[in-house]
Every structure is written in C-alpha cells, then in structure tokens.
Simulated assay, not measured.
Amino acid sequence: MLRAFLVLVCLAASPALAQTMMHHHAMMDSGDGAPITPTQVGQSAFAAIQEIVAILEADPKTDWSKVDIEALRQHLIDMDAVTLCAESKSEPVDGGMRFVVTGAGPVKDSIRRMVFAHAATMNGVGGWSMSAAEIDDGATLTVIAPAKDAAKLRALGFIGVLTLGMHHQMHHLMIAKGENPHP
C-alpha cells in the first residue's frame, strides 16, 4: 500500500519536478556566466531537416511554393535504409570494384535510388568512374579508380564510396527547394 502511495505521489509531482529540473538546468552556466543550453535535437534526420529549414527561412529568396521538405525526409529515409539495412558484397573488377548491394522490400528501392543518384552525381570526380545497374534485389555500383587510389577504394567499401564528395549538404538543400540535384 505504501509503495502504491509513493508511486502516485511521484507521478503527481512529475510535472512540477520536471519544471524545477528545467529551471535548474537553465540556471546552470558554463562558469563565465553564459547559460548552458542543449544543442542536440536528438535524431540525425530531424537535425538535417531542421538545418535545411533554418537555411530556407534565412534566405529571403526562398520560393516556398516549390519547397518540398517531405521529399528531403524521404531521401533521408533512403539514406538510413541503405546505411543500416542493405547488404553489400565487394567484387574486384579490372581497375576497381563492383559493389553488389541488396535488400528486401522498401530497402531494395532505397538502394536503387541511392546507388543511381550517387553514380550520376560522382561519376568522373577525382578520376573515378562510377556506373550503376539494377539487379533483382537491389543494384550494383561499379567503381573504377586510378591505380594510386586502389587501396583507398578497397578500404572505403560501398558505404565509404557513398560518402565521397561534400555534395550531400547541397544535395539536401536542392531536394528541399524542389530542384533536381542529379545531373
């Protein structure tokens, strides 16, 4: 009986306790009088979207009739699916590697979108040739690199190759603006 009473008291006090804790946290400072405030939004896709929305809001030239944040969200879902759920096997080819990337259900479609988009965007950059092909349960990405980059290509593997180039941030902004980010 006492235990049930204590649980009820704790539950009833929770809003007040939370408010007190938030007030206490807001009162904390870094030692120089500056308040300490949280910086993490708690989830990386949410943070990426929040960053893009802030950029769009700060730009007086933003054409809100073309903005499509949902398209960006769908792209981030694809990125997550490929990064965390796809299977990747590497096969050496003359002058490079072929990555056979597979997955079931929606992951298969995410693989295809990501692989074809990356090949189109990065083909020829740094002397690396990239081509994509559809297979039954995903796609292949064939990468031919200069001989000096052979060890780098092997070390990067499929997901490392997808990270190449600092185009992702601008790519996300273009998607959100309703523009075609792929040549």
Rank of each mutant, 00 (worst) to 15 (best):
H75R: 11
D78I: 05
H168E: 11
A120I: 07
T102E: 04
G126D: 00
V143P: 00
A13L: 00
G33F: 15
A45L: 13
H75D: 14
A47S: 06
D68I: 08
G160S: 13
V107D: 02
I144Q: 12
L141I: 02
M21H: 10
D149R: 12
V125M: 10
D63A: 09
G124S: 03
A16D: 03
F5C: 01
R112T: 06
L141G: 01
D32L: 07
D80N: 13
V82F: 01
K148E: 08
T140P: 00
V125T: 06
M174L: 08
E57H: 10
H171S: 04
L162Q: 01
A12S: 12
G160V: 15
L11M: 14
P183S: 13
R3Q: 03
Q169D: 07
T62D: 01
T121H: 10
L11D: 03
I69W: 08
G160H: 11
I135G: 00
Q43L: 09
F5V: 00
V100A: 11
A86D: 01
A120F: 10
E134T: 05
P92K: 13
V67W: 04
H168D: 07
E179C: 01
I52T: 15
W64Y: 09
A81D: 02
H171Y: 10
H75G: 08
V67H: 11
T62W: 11
A117D: 00
S110M: 05
E179I: 02
Q50M: 13
S88C: 13
F5I: 02
A145Q: 05
T83W: 13
A54F: 07
V143L: 10
I144F: 06
L17H: 06
L72D: 02
I77T: 09
G178I: 07
A117R: 02
P38M: 14
A155K: 15
H182T: 14
S44E: 11
L162Y: 04
M22L: 15
A176G: 00
A155H: 09
M28W: 11
D137W: 03
P183N: 12
C85H: 15
A48D: 03
A48K: 04
F116G: 03
M97E: 14
T163M: 14
E87W: 14
L173C: 02
L84W: 13
G138A: 05
G42R: 10
E179L: 09
G103E: 02
A18H: 11
E57F: 12
D136Y: 06
E57A: 13
